[in-house]
Amino acid sequence: MNRKWIATLCVFVSVQCLSWLDSGVLGTGYVNTVAADEYEAFTEPYRRINVSSSEMGVITDLKVREGDEVRQGQVLAQLEDSLLRKTLEVSRAAKDAVGGKTAAEAEVVIREQQVQSYRRLSTQGNATPRELERAESDHQQALARLQSVTEELNVRALEYQRVICQLEQRRILSPADGVVVSLAKEAGEFVSPTDPVLLQLVQLDRLKAVFSVPLRRIDRLSEGQTVVVRVGGSRRPVVGTLEHISPVANAESGTIRVRVILDNQKKDLRSGVVCWLDLEASARSLESKRARVGANLLSPAVR
């Protein structure tokens, strides 16, 4: 009888304790510190770029190291280009060779003078129509030769510009502002079409965090909305912008991926730390903003 009574008492106490835990009666030390309307993720670089080379060749100079901050358009590496520089000199010489054009222009002047002379003689009856036609034909041929030489010089100028572009492609430029986080190649190594990556660059002036939000909460969110994100172990509140809501839900978890952007111009937020999307604080912030906008729309007399 005593054993039965003791067992019944134990069950009653267990149920009561569970009830107290759920209601928070036993104190905050036993209650989950994360609110029910918060969703966890990790901060990430806004962009992660594998900088590659469109040309193959040996790296003669690697101008950055891990941790360096770079600007868009900054030279990151240089490929071997001695042969192209010689080709550029040949192209420049060919482009600047105008002797053929000068000779063709002189011939055009002579042929034109001959035509004028035969026309005067023809009006005086001292030249036959056949002689005049031959002079005009020679003039047209001289014009054609001048046109041919001019077109050839234009092609040489384009060839010169092409070599300049090829030389530019031997320089690897930064596609964006960011920080170098890893090097895949060193000076002296060969860059091939099958292995073109030189380094990895991350953009840290903005961070992103991708949260999985339950379907029942998604109606409270919209793209472009200002939200509150708590970052790191100190749960520092940071204002972010909801950049994208996935149009497709995850059927297994019943959630939708939401991407939030955090401004990090001061570089005071670290990438790769835990963060929480606080929907309750975001809703309060949105309501406060709407209230301020509504107050500003009122006239001074109404206020």
Rank of each mutant, 00 (worst) to 15 (best):
R111P: 02
E89L: 07
A103E: 14
E107S: 12
I110S: 07
V75E: 04
R92F: 15
I110E: 11
A94D: 15
A103K: 12
R111G: 04
K86V: 05
E89N: 11
A104E: 01
E69G: 12
K101H: 10
E80L: 06
T87Y: 07
A104V: 04
V90K: 10
D68V: 00
G100A: 08
V109R: 14
G99M: 01
K86A: 08
K101A: 11
A77D: 01
D96P: 02
T87E: 13
V108D: 08
L88Q: 15
V98I: 11
D68I: 01
L76G: 02
R71A: 10
E69H: 15
L79N: 03
D68L: 00
R92K: 15
G99A: 08
D81M: 05
E105K: 04
L76V: 04
S91K: 06
K95L: 12
Q78E: 13
K95C: 09
E69R: 15
L76E: 02
K95N: 15
L76M: 11
E107R: 13
A106R: 06
A103H: 12
A94H: 10
A94G: 14
L79Y: 03
A104G: 08
E69K: 13
V90L: 14
L88C: 08
G73E: 05
L76D: 02
K101I: 07
A97C: 07
Q74G: 03
A104Y: 07
A93W: 04
L84Q: 00
K86E: 06
L84Y: 02
T87W: 08
E105A: 05
V90N: 09
A94I: 08
Q72L: 08
R111W: 00
L83S: 14
L83T: 09
L88G: 09
V90Q: 14
A106Y: 06
L88N: 10
E80T: 03
A106Q: 08
R71G: 15
S82R: 13
K101Q: 12
K101G: 10
G73W: 03
V98N: 12
A77I: 00
D68A: 01
S82Q: 12
E107K: 12
V108Q: 12
L83A: 13
G99D: 03
A77S: 01
L83N: 07
V90M: 13
S82A: 12
E69V: 10
S82G: 09
A77G: 01
R111N: 06
A106C: 03
L79R: 00
G99I: 04
A97H: 09
V98L: 14
Q72K: 14
D81T: 07
E105S: 05
Q74I: 03
G73H: 02
L88K: 08
T102D: 13
L83F: 10
V109A: 13
L79W: 04
R71L: 11
L88E: 14
K95Q: 14
R71S: 15
E69L: 10
Q72G: 11
V75P: 00
